[in-house]
Design a binder for these strands. Sequence first.
DNA 1: ATTCGTGCAAATGCTTTGCACCCAC
DNA 2: GTGGGTGCAAAGCATTTGCACGAAT
Lengths: 145, 145
Amino acid sequence: MTAQLKIRYDSYIQENQLKSSRRRDMIFEHILQIQGHFTVDNIYQEILTIDSGIGIATIYRTVRLLVASGVLSEQTFGEKKGWFEINDLKVEHHDHMICTSCGKIIEFHSKVIESNKHEIAKAHCFIIYSHKLEIFGLCNTCQKQ
Amino acid sequence: MTAQLKIRYDSYIQENQLKSSRRRDMIFEHILQIQGHFTVDNIYQEILTIDSGIGIATIYRTVRLLVASGVLSEQTFGEKKGWFEINDLKVEHHDHMICTSCGKIIEFHSKVIESNKHEIAKAHCFIIYSHKLEIFGLCNTCQKQ
DNA sequence: ATTCGTGCAAATGCTTTGCACCCAC
DNA sequence: GTGGGTGCAAAGCATTTGCACGAAT
């Protein structure tokens, strides 16, 4: 799967007359290691400890490139900032339950919702590109506190 | 329904030792007339033409009050700014299809999704407060262009 | 009178961008 | 060598906040 993403990254760079660079590659490799969701500042802080000279603008630019190339997808989770995650096309689309107390994000997938979504779109003559379903509430742990 | 919202507005002000004021009331009344979704800047521009002395901070403060009192609900629609709409509790919860070409928003409701959502939450021992489902794609009109 | 509401401008948080310089090809 | 990559600081946007003054009870 990592190989798939590498191909997507490389070909995007190729097709758009961009260049690879030490930092670009390093950010890409770093992001590949991440499980789950992250913000630009999350990876900026992490990469700072390895490469103290890096600027946050470079992270922003690289993340934009990765979204444009399809390596990452972006969500807002109802906040006014970007959250990112690896966009693995081989994995089924998933949705999120977000704990409003501790911020924990639980991923899930529902075939029922998936197929109903298509029925609804059909009824409205709407062509679906993507969807985002977020459920807000309390996770198991926070209910007990 | 407008009466319902007025009660919610008035009692929130009462219960929180706030005051009503000419501008607060005017913004509230203005928002009641709005069909569909709007941003703070939308109503600011509109109200400016009636009350040229108003400041955008007042709109922000009033909209926050209306969200806190349950008169309005807020969504991001994947953007990094707030979109608001009247939160009529008597109307069933609805979701949104957003045309990525013209920005048109189509509202819909699905009992199937509604009940499936509760099954999923139950399976994860998650207590639902709210949910947001956004479908992005092309509306009927934009498909033909 | 006192307390809250309001305009203004400054501050904030996240993100983008212009510019001079650096690096890859 | 040339064009893209990068850090830095400045600019952009949406939003919030501090402050002095004005209005509501």
